[in-house]
Design a protein around this nucleic acid. Structure first.
Length: 845
DNA sequence: ATCTGTGGCCACCAGC
DNA sequence: GCTGGTGGCCAC
């Protein structure tokens, strides 16, 4: 395809919408040159993207509490068309008021976010008292990630009907939910139960000739040639576009079957044909494409005099995307703390392609000795191919888990996938709430208006620097306890938000008659007249997760069904877990400290009531943390009684979470060992399992755990002690004889700031990082591996240290404290095991 | 420019 | 040597 043909293709695509009847709403596009904003719709059958530009003359708008007369000066602006009076409900005062609607022309306001850019000058917005902006998607009630119908009247959502199982599950869910939630449950079930189509996609990655070692080439100047580009699709397709270079005869890596090697002498031709190839894919994946691959491609293409209209890349301020489809930068997605924690249970901590792939896929990048400059053509192509393949696989493993998670999140957040994959959880929840305001014809308050309810907490946090008091942790009863049952409030904070009607507009509401409705354990009151918006939404999401999807998942017959329900359950979990936190987050647009503070206060109230109830039945509560209770040897009847009591009295589900054969506590909170009925061991908080602990010590730790977990009687115990003694002695000797490989002695600690930002103290990992920075680039987010050495600094990066420099005593000390936690808990002492009070004493230091 | 919350343990740093 | 503070990692 020639350059001009490509340009024609893109133009034609915009018109193609007339042929489309049903599309899957993928995203929002903006073409600055054409001054055109449009929706990107995927045709699920042929996987082509169509573009929808509303010709009905829709114009973005925003609201102000000032009168049209007061705002008349705005009409002088070229982008303000008209100002008119409309009526809106103001949640904070619970009154319907007249406001001014300011209609603009700026097509940017069509974007996925609520179009803040429609009047771009922030000060001007304040002066005009702008309340909130509209947005094409919200205005029209369109939900991204769902099916759309297009006809003469425009575009509207298609609601797929529920299957038989879904319908009966919905009936059950409705029956067990409160009346005021039924409408929401009904809606969410319809929305989230929609099937997720196959999404054709390809991952791309570019390799650039490097100038200096360990430095990334500059994407803005793009001075160095692109020597290889790989593209790997989930449809089995794959190509590597490589600049001709020397082929060595020695053993070279071969591209797998089906992946074409395309060799070019001319870099410009290489780029043009690559641009042509990506047009087949509606979704393009990269790892760090926003800040490197796409800007580099774009600027390099410009440098090579490819006409701008033939480059299908659009560079925006913080992201890059494609004219013909959407771009997901997985680097940003995997950096998202919610995705990292709740979707992937913190399986990776470093955010490089290699680290994430290794943790989630068990695969790694191709290791190379030097720079890619030295690779032969086939080896370069293979190296490049593997990077794209890994990137693609990050979205395909576990039956397309990640891509499907993004689609579901996009439905919940009412936000397009490009934004959902880049922005954090507070933006998702913000979007969801603004959509709800819009639907109710409610004015979105400004943050300062909500804050006028009170910005001083009533409670005092235990940790210095925190704003308010959090969860309650029960002092553990030291020792080994048999037959322990752990009860757990099911999603405690979302339940509290639902049950006590917590929302920014309902806590300290304006009605006189509600002031007596004091929330227990607080000095705040809650509204008796209206149900709060966050209470409704969070409550409904909680109920639909527990009463609808969890039940469906249990009944699922096929693996596919089960996976589908699990994905939705995961997405709901992510949003629910963050829903309380954002209320206490200052930068959240609906930040409301009284709501956050009441939530934890009611949490403490709930657990304290449960403790009292349990103790009144004569059952010892040996530990508990925020929403859990560890009960010592209760009978089944007693447990049932407590569970029923919680449901009836608190209105919150208390469930049996775990049954331990025994649990061992030291005097430390958040620090224990539990052994299940089947003998498997769970370790919480102990240093021996922490990620920064050297592998050598972890190994000894887990070996000792293994020995201890087999103890069932007194005679086993004698055996165990002997085994532990041997194991510790062996470890000691290995240390002393310097028999341990250096990397097993390395502490691995994340650098959370850039090196210059450590101004207060210089921790050990920073000292090591400073030494390393002379050799290579060190940046925030890197994990620094260092060993403790005898020198003045006491620390060296593992790759710069020698075995002789290791400070053996420091390692003995660390082992000492690691095992002390374990032995304290089990009620053993070093004395019992090795005849000395500490390892150090035993070996005569 | 980006960021959901608080509670708790541990090692080390820096200042007295 | 003691102590408060910093920083990291974890529990929930």
């Amino acid at each position: 395809m020639s350059v001009s043909e490509l340009s024609e293709f893109l133009d034609a695509a915009v018109k193609d919408i007339n042929r489309l009847e049903n599309g899957f709403l993928l995203g929002v596009g903006y073409n600055g040159d054409k001054g055109l904003a449009y929706l990107k719709l995927l045709e699920p059958l042929n996987q082509k993207v169509y573009y929808y530009y509303d010709k009905t003359g829709h114009k973005p708008y925003c609201y102000s509490k000032k009168t049209p007369e007061e705002l008349s000066y705005l009409l002088k602006r070229s982008d303000v068309i008209k100002i008119e009076t409309v009526s809106k409900w103001d949640p904070l005062t619970d009154k319907t008021i007249n406001v001014s609607k300011i209609i603009t022309t700026d097509p940017l306001a069509i974007g996925g976010n609520p179009g803040e850019k429609s009047i771009r000058n922030i000060e001007e917005c304040y002066e005009a008292d702008i309340k909130y902006y509209e947005n094409y998607i919200y205005d029209n009630g369109l939900i991204p990630g769902t099916y759309m119908k297009i006809d003469r009247n425009g575009m509207s959502n298609v609601s797929n009907s529920l299957s038989g199982e879904m319908q009966s599950a919905l009936q059950e869910a409705l029956a067990s939910s409160d009346d005021f939630l039924k409408k929401y449950i009904y809606e969410f079930s319809g929305l989230l139960s929609q099937p997720i189509p196959f999404i054709k996609r390809a991952a791309i990655d570019i390799e650039v000739l490097t100038e200096t070692e360990n430095r990334l080439p500059d994407a803005d100047s793009a001075t160095q040639p692109i020597i290889s580009i790989s593209l790997v699709g989930n449809d089995g397709g794959g190509e590597v576009f490589v600049l001709n270079r020397e082929v060595q005869n020695e053993k070279e890596n071969k591209l797998p079957e089906g992946v074409k090697l395309r060799v070019y002498d001319d870099e410009k031709q290489l780029l043009i044909e690559f641009f042509n190839s990506i047009l087949q894919y509606p979704v393009i994946l990269t790892f760090n494409g926003d800040s490197f691959d796409l800007p580099y491609l774009y600027h390099r293409a410009v440098n090579l005099k490819i006409p701008k209209e033939a480059i299908p890349i659009i560079l925006q301020r913080e992201m890059a995307t494609f004219v013909h489809g959407i771009h997901i930068d997985l680097y940003k997605t995997f950096n998202n703390r919610s995705i990292q924690g709740y979707a992937f249970s913190n399986k990776y901590s470093e955010h490089t392609l290699n680290a994430v792939s290794e943790a989630l896929l068990g695969e790694e990048k191709v290791a190379i000795d030097n720079t890619i400059n030295d690779l032969s053509m086939n080896n370069l192509a293979y190296y490049n191919y593997v990077d794209s393949k890994l990137t693609l696989n990050l979205t395909t493993f576990d039956s397309d888990l990640l891509i499907r998670l993004l689609v579901v999140l996009s439905r919940i957040a009412r936000m397009n996938i490009e934004d959902v994959s880049r922005l954090s959880v507070s933006n998702w929840i913000r979007s969801m709430l603004i959509y709800e305001h819009r639907r109710r014809n409610a004015l979105v308050p400004r943050k300062e208006e909500i804050e006028s309810k009170g910005s001083e907490a009533v409670s005092r946090a235990i940790i210095k620097g925190k704003k308010y008091l959090g969860g309650f942790v029960i002092e553990p009863t030291v020792g080994v306890h048999f037959k322990v049952i752990v009860l757990d409030f099911a999603s405690l904070y979302p339940s509290i938000i639902k049950v006590y009607n917590l929302s920014y507009e309902t806590v300290k509401c304006p009605h006189e008659e509600c002031r007596t409705n004091i929330l227990p354990n607080t000095s705040y009151w809650a509204c008796k007249i209206n149900r709060g918006m966050t209470s409704l939404l969070i409550g409904a999401l909680r109920d639909i997760r527990v009463n609808y999807f969890k039940r469906l998942s249990k009944k699922a017959k096929t693996k596919e069904e089960k996976e589908f329900y699990n994905v939705i359950s995961q997405a709901l979990k992510v949003v629910l877990n963050a829903s309380y936190g954002v209320m206490g987050f200052e930068n959240f647009p609906f930040y409301c400290l009284p709501v956050a503070e009441s939530t934890t206060a009611l949490g403490r109230y709930s657990i304290q009531q449960a403790i009292d109830k349990t103790k009144s039945l004569g059952i010892p509560v040996i530990y508990g943390d925020t929403d859990s209770l560890f009960l010592k040897s209760p009978t089944d009847e007693q447990v049932t009684e407590i569970v029923n009591w919680a449901k009836d009295t608190l209105g919150i589900d208390l469930e049996i979470d775990k049954r331990y054969r025994y649990v061992a506590f030291s005097q430390r909170k958040k620090n224990y060992i539990g052994v299940y009925e089947d003998g498997s061991v769970e370790i919480k908080g102990l240093s021996g399992k922490k990620s920064h602990t050297p592998d050598f010590i972890k190994k000894v730790f887990y070996d000792v755990i293994q020995i201890l977990s087999q103890v069932k009687s007194q005679s086993d115990f004698e055996d165990a002690k002997e085994k532990i003694r041997k194991r510790i002695r062996q470890a000691y000797l290995d240390l002393k004889n310097r028999n341990i490989p250096l990397d097993e002695l390395a502490f691995k600690v994340m650098l959370n700031k850039s090196l210059d930002d450590y101004t207060d103290t210089t921790p050990q990992h920073v000292k090591a990082a400073q030494l390393l920075s002379q050799r290579k680039e060190i940046k925030s987010g890197d994990i620094i591996a260092y060993v403790k050495t005898v020198g003045k600094e006491g620390v060296k990066p593992v790759e710069m240290a020698k075995k002789e420099e290791i400070d053996v005593n420091k390692y003995i000390e660390f082992m000492d404290s690691t095992f002390e936690q374990l032995l304290d808990a089990l009620g053993f002492s070093f004395e019992e095991i090795i005849g000395a009070s500490r390892i150090e004493d035993f070996f005569g230091f």
